[in-house]
Simulated scan of single mutants.
Amino acid sequence: MKNNEVFTIGLMSGTSLDGVDLVYVKFLKNEYQDFEIIYAETIAYSIKWKQMLQNAIHFSTEELLALDITYGKYLGGLINNFINNYKIAVVDFVASHGHTILHEPEKGITLQIGSGKEIAKITKQKVVCDFRTQDVDLGGQGAPLVPVGDELLFSNYDFCLNLGGFSNVSFKKDNKRVAFDICPVNIVLNFYANKIGLEYDVSGAIASEGKINKKLLDALNSLEFYGVIAPKSLGLEWVQKEVFPLIDSLESDVSSVLSTFVEHVAIQIAKVIKDSNSVLVTGGGVFNSFLMKRVEYYSNIKIEQSSDALINYKEALIFAFLGVLKIDNQVNCLKSVTGASKDHSSGVIFLP
């Protein structure tokens, strides 16, 4: 690290399996809000990788250990290509979220694959990874982790809302940062779009033509999770157990499923951000214009769109930032957010 500048590469792979997001960021120490995303890119998954990551939830322990190493090597190769393609000269460290395979914090379980040891070996860079395990060990949800970045990088907004595989939010309440997962978004919408041969519902066009199934909408809004007080988080397991069977029992038409689920998402989000005119919204869901209109309708606000770089890469940016905090042994997990027994500096460091 030179003088006051820190140059880092951040990696993020979300539950919607769009691909691996990579960012090359410059931070100024002690003036974190003056960051610069210098380069950013998303590397789409091959069909083989997408299927493997989707099915990994059913893998044995031995298969998961092997996948952790294989995926770490894959990430290491992506990082090397990223460095070479953009002719990046200075990297102080790499911060990798990995890909979440299991997340059941109430059982003390969370697993993000992508061996930091393998990434360090292949890239010859210092690597910070495995940001969630320590928090779960301390009794926390291990999620969401982004709110520390919201607190230190985007404190000028009342709410920081992310629309990815799941929607999550963070905000200040009683002088404490509060954050939680709100509801599934793209993990469900994309699943049903896939059923009619589409990767996703572009701009929400199909959802906009469907009919709302009132019985399904009421059932979704009545799911127990929505009555639970934060901290709380969601995972694929919950969607597979609670959401998919409910939808499939009440509606078979894909356009109606998409329309009803968009309505459900908008209602749940509006409960949290209603009447605020200072909301930063990021994540792929922002490009679903039909969803955004329904969120604006129920929340009674006008949402200003931020830059595409921030919309697409905020999570990768913040995992790079969590690495900065970990390297300096500063707090990057807030007990007020995750429910852990204490604030702490989470992550594991691997040297090349």
Results as ranks from 00 to 15, higher is better:
residue 209 E to Y: 13
residue 174 D to E: 15
residue 148 V to L: 08
residue 110 T to R: 04
residue 20 V to K: 03
residue 127 V to W: 04
residue 98 G to R: 01
residue 257 V to E: 01
residue 85 N to L: 14
residue 154 F to D: 04
residue 206 I to H: 05
residue 56 A to L: 01
residue 336 S to Q: 06
residue 151 E to G: 09
residue 295 V to I: 12
residue 17 L to M: 03
residue 134 Q to M: 12
residue 242 E to Y: 11
residue 293 K to Q: 14
residue 333 C to N: 13
residue 338 T to C: 07
residue 271 K to P: 06
residue 137 D to V: 15
residue 291 L to H: 04
residue 66 A to D: 15
residue 228 V to F: 14
residue 106 E to P: 09
residue 72 G to L: 05
residue 105 P to H: 04
residue 208 S to H: 08
residue 126 K to M: 11
residue 279 V to K: 03
residue 245 P to W: 10
residue 162 N to Y: 05
residue 326 K to T: 09
residue 90 V to C: 14
residue 186 N to V: 07
residue 98 G to A: 04
residue 96 S to Q: 05
residue 87 K to I: 14
residue 204 G to P: 00
residue 90 V to Q: 13
residue 144 P to T: 06
residue 49 W to I: 09
residue 242 E to I: 10
residue 42 T to V: 08
residue 56 A to W: 00
residue 106 E to F: 14
residue 92 D to N: 13
residue 231 P to A: 10
residue 283 G to R: 00
residue 349 I to V: 11
residue 258 L to T: 06
residue 10 G to D: 02
residue 195 K to C: 08
residue 99 H to A: 05
residue 230 A to L: 10
residue 140 G to D: 03
residue 102 L to F: 15
residue 266 A to D: 04
residue 64 L to H: 07
residue 250 L to G: 05
residue 234 L to M: 10
residue 247 I to R: 02
residue 109 I to F: 07
residue 302 K to M: 13
residue 159 F to E: 01
residue 334 L to G: 00
residue 205 A to Y: 14
residue 302 K to D: 15
residue 146 V to N: 03
residue 304 E to D: 15
residue 168 N to T: 07
residue 9 I to N: 01
residue 314 K to C: 07
residue 96 S to K: 08
residue 268 Q to G: 09
residue 120 A to L: 10
residue 258 L to I: 02
residue 215 K to L: 11
residue 90 V to F: 14
residue 98 G to I: 00
residue 23 V to P: 05
residue 278 S to A: 12
residue 271 K to N: 12
residue 284 G to N: 00
residue 172 K to R: 10
residue 158 D to R: 12
residue 206 I to N: 00
residue 85 N to R: 12
residue 29 K to P: 13
residue 322 L to Y: 00
residue 221 N to P: 12
residue 145 L to K: 01
residue 308 D to S: 12
residue 65 L to M: 11
residue 39 Y to E: 12
residue 171 F to T: 06
residue 242 E to M: 15
residue 142 G to K: 03
